[in-house]
Structure formats: C-alpha cells, structure tokens
C-alpha cells in the first residue's frame, strides 16, 4: 500500500511532465512567421506582430464587423494615429481576450477598442463553455491550435525563435468596394427592453477591461453600424453594462446622420458589413472622438513612421471611395 502523499506527488509529477511536453511542443510547432506560408491562422488579424514594437497606439479587437467597418489607414491619413484591427469571424469575447493578450506581448497601445457585437455571438451555454476552454487552451498552448503543422515543419525550424515578416498594408482591414445597399426599415426602434449578455461573456469582458486598466490603457466599447446584427435591445444591454463597468460605449447605429451615414451606399452585403466607404465615414468620426478624448500623437511627420505613408498610397489605390 503506497502512502497517500506519494500518490499525490506522482499525480503532480506526471501532470508537470505532461505540461512541460505540451509547452515545448507548443514552442516547436507554433508558426514561426505571421504569414500564410508561415502557417498562422488569420494572418491579417495577426499583422501587428510584424509592426515595429510599440508602434501601434490603438488596437481594435472584434469580429467581422470590426475588420470591415474600421479603417486604420483613414485614421492615419486624417489624424496620424497608428491603429491596427484584429478581427476574427464570429469572434467571441473569450477569443477577443486571448487576442488582447497577444497584442500586449509586442505592442503598447494607448487605447483598446472592443467591438461589442461579439457580446451576442450566438451559441448555447455548452458551446460557449467549449469555446472558452478552446480559446484559452489554444492561446496558452498553441499546440492545440497548430498541432497539424508537424506535417510541414522542418527539423531545423523546430527550435527557431519566431520571426515575423508578414506585412499587412491595410492594417487588418478587410477592404471591399462592393456596394449592395440596404433599403429596408429603420432597425433601431427605441425601446426600454433589454437583451441579455451571457454570463460567460461578461466574465471574459471584465477580464478584458481589467487587463487594460492594470496597464493604464484606455478602453472603449464600440458598435459599428450593422443593420442585421444590431438592435435597440442590444444597445440598452451594452449601455447598461458599460455604465456598470465605467467604460464609454459608442454606438454608431444611433444618430447616424452625425457622420453622414447612408445604408444605400455604405454596405457591401445589404446591411450586415460595411464597405470601404462606410468604414471611412465611421473611422473619421471616431478619429475626432479619439482626438478630443485621448492624448494621442500625430506621427505623420515622424520619419520613423514613413512606411505608413507608403501603406496609405497602397491603400488609396485599392480603396475606391
């Protein structure tokens, strides 16, 4: 009969061995570059890795609404602020939180903007729990996300440090010039009713806000115009929740004439996502708010940032506004 203590030590010992193996295989199999060829998932959301350290002042995190409706290049051209959009399709707030931790590894943003559509990403409680586990496993131990790279990885690559070379000129924005307008009814009808933010989501959102505050980073909740995914009930829910947390919430579905928004011309898919034109309007409006509220630096004349001017040229060639 073995003693209880000895057994306990064994359990811990084996668990420690396993964790050590997982960490080392995570290191070996993680993509060594943030390009498509490097094997990274969603290269454009991860492009901030290859921006020089500490050069991004504003980080925008969210789902497809964020990468369609926010344009870092317009912000650069209008205000000289450096922003990067890290958007992932149907991102949950748990995933947003793990994205934030990645951003903070290499960048020191002054403001982080969380797009709030992800608060309501539809999933059952169970799926939600799975996604949280998945996201935290995947972000802490990349072997769970990138295990399949054993097929491609070369032996010499295994022990190399990551070296990020991928350059994303639109800084994470998904640029689309398509126009497919929305001609339907007004979707933001005022009501006192409120939608419900799931408990798991709140948990992740609070961790998100706390991390930013601990590092003295400004946090903003933002909702970009989306006719199909937003309504007044959701607005009420997020407004109330943001007030509780003491976070500013900007809902751009309300009073859209403030920035001259037009559903007939500014969406690429009939009211769900914005096109480059819509993104421009929203971004310039936000720029003004950021200028008033935060002490941000205009880098346009700074030689260190000359690459941004080239990127803007590239962007204007592609964006037909």
């Amino acid at each position: 009969m073995k003693s209880g203590l000895k057994k306990l030590i064994r359990v811990f010992g084996f668990t420690a061995l396993l964790i050590a193996l997982v960490i080392s295989s995570s290191y070996m199999l993680a993509p060594k570059d943030n390009t498509k060829e490097g094997g990274i998932v969603n290269p454009s959301a991860n492009g901030f890795f290859s921006e020089p350290k500490g050069t991004i002042d504003i980080s925008v995190i969210g789902n497809s609404d964020a990468y369609s409706g926010f344009s870092p290049m317009e912000l650069w051209n209008g205000y000289g602020y450096t922003a990067y959009v890290s958007g992932e399709g149907s991102q949950t707030v748990a995933q947003a939180y793990s994205m934030l931790s990645k951003v903070l590894k290499v960048q020191t943003p002054k403001v982080v903007i969380l797009e709030t559509d992800g608060f309501f990403t539809k999933s059952k409680v169970v799926e939600n729990a799975a996604k949280i586990v998945n996201a935290s496993l995947g972000s802490s131990f990349s072997v769970f996300q990138y295990h399949d790279r054993w097929k491609k990885v070369k032996i010499g690559e295994l022990f190399k440090k990551p070296h990020y070379t991928g350059h994303c000129a639109p800084k994470g924005q998904w640029l689309s010039n398509d126009v497919k307008g929305y001609n339907g009814k007004e979707y933001m009808k005022k009501t006192d009713k409120s939608a419900e933010i799931p408990l798991g989501t709140k948990h992740s959102a609070e961790a998100f806000v706390k991390t930013c505050r601990d590092k003295n980073i400004g946090v903003l909740f933002l909702e970009l115009p989306s006719q199909s995914s937003w309504n007044y009930k959701k607005h009420n829910a997020v407004k109330k929740y943001a007030d509780e947390l003491g976070v500013t919430f900007i809902d751009m579905n309300i009073d859209r004439e403030r920035f001259d928004f037009n559903w007939k011309t500014d969406t690429r898919d009939g009211g769900n996502h914005l096109n480059s034109k819509g993104a421009r309007k929203c971004t310039l409006f936000l720029g003004k708010y950021l200028e008033e509220k935060y002490n941000l630096t205009d880098h346009r004349k700074d030689k260190k940032y000359s690459r941004w001017n080239e990127d803007f040229k590239d962007y204007s060639k592609n964006a037909k506004i």
Binding site: L21, S25, L29, H147
Partner: peptide
C-alpha cells in the same frame, strides 16, 4: 511507464485529427 503514457497522450494532442481543417 511515464514515457509510455506521456507518448500516448502527446500523440493524441499532436497527431489527433481535430481543429482547423
């Protein structure tokens, strides 16, 4: 023993057909 068990567990994590794709 530990080598056998750890190999088995690690091979599930690395060679399992799950996740992206």
């Amino acid at each position: 023993r530990w080598a056998v068990y750890a190999c088995l567990a690690l091979s599930v994590i690395i060679f399992g057909a799950y996740g992206i794709g």
